[in-house]
């Protein structure tokens, strides 16, 4: 019972987020109109992905320091969940862009970098599957995980800000919800949504790690 509070929190937050995101009053902005509600589903997916992938890297480093196989289980499952969030983020973005920009894929810098980020982590999963030995698989993929994450930072945080050509709201003169636009009505759902989705991802990870543990126990 002690450890169950965060799952309850997750369910409560997400019910609140889904109801709030669809029903609450939102600010009226040109071009965006009602699609601004996608903020709570699309943008939060990226936040969730970054959080999960960061945790995955932390576990990869932990594994390299300690050689405990549980850390590797956590690392790969957090990466899996991060990839799932990434795919959901790209899909929700494409659906939204189809209505707002007129086409699902318009080669926006942020779209491209998210696609590359997914490619990197898919390569990570391919690398894992091509190695046989359990310890070697864990070690080599942890190294690639850290290396790829370091190469990802300039991609996600520096490059999109160097170009002013992004179509995304808040970039290149498009109306958006940056510092002064993201008003308190949106914030009231946006921040809980990030926490809620991140908790959901963690929940998923904890279940998958338990399945892994059972499998290894059965094999031994």
């Amino acid at each position: 019972m002690k450890k169950r509070w965060w799952k309850i929190l997750c369910v409560v937050l997400l019910v609140y987020v889904i109801l709030g995101a669809l029903l609450f009053e939102v600010p009226r902005l040109a071009i965006l109109n009602e699609t601004i509600r996608n903020l709570h589903f699309h943008v939060t997916m990226w936040f969730g992905m970054i959080i999960l992938l960061t945790v995955s890297v932390v576990y990869a480093i932990k594994y390299l320091r300690s050689n405990k196989i549980e850390h590797d289980h956590y690392s790969v499952e957090f990466a899996n969940a991060g990839v799932l969030f990434g795919i959901l983020g790209i899909t929700t973005g494409a659906i939204w862009a189809n209505f707002t920009w007129g086409e699902p894929w318009s080669g926006d810098p942020k779209q491209n970098s998210s696609a590359i980020a997914l490619l990197i982590y898919l390569a990570y999963l391919v690398l894992r599957n091509s190695l046989e030995d359990q310890q070697q698989k864990a070690r080599v993929s942890a190294i690639y995980n850290v290396f790829a994450f370091a190469a990802l930072i300039p991609l996600l945080f520096i490059l999109p800000r160097m170009t002013d050509s992004s179509l995304h709201p808040g970039n290149g003169g498009n109306p958006g919800f940056n510092a002064y636009d993201l008003d308190s009505r949106l914030r009231m759902i946006f921040y809980p949504a990030i926490i809620g989705w991140a908790l959901l991802g963690t929940w998923l990870v904890s279940l998958r790690v338990r399945i892994r543990k059972i499998k290894t126990a059965l094999e031994d």
Partner: peptide
């Protein structure tokens, strides 16, 4: 094969700059 799969996505940001 793996070297291409691993390196291309990692090098794209660098290549863009």
């Amino acid at each position: 094969t793996l070297i291409a799969v691993l390196s291309f996505p990692v090098m794209i940001p660098m290549l863009l700059v």
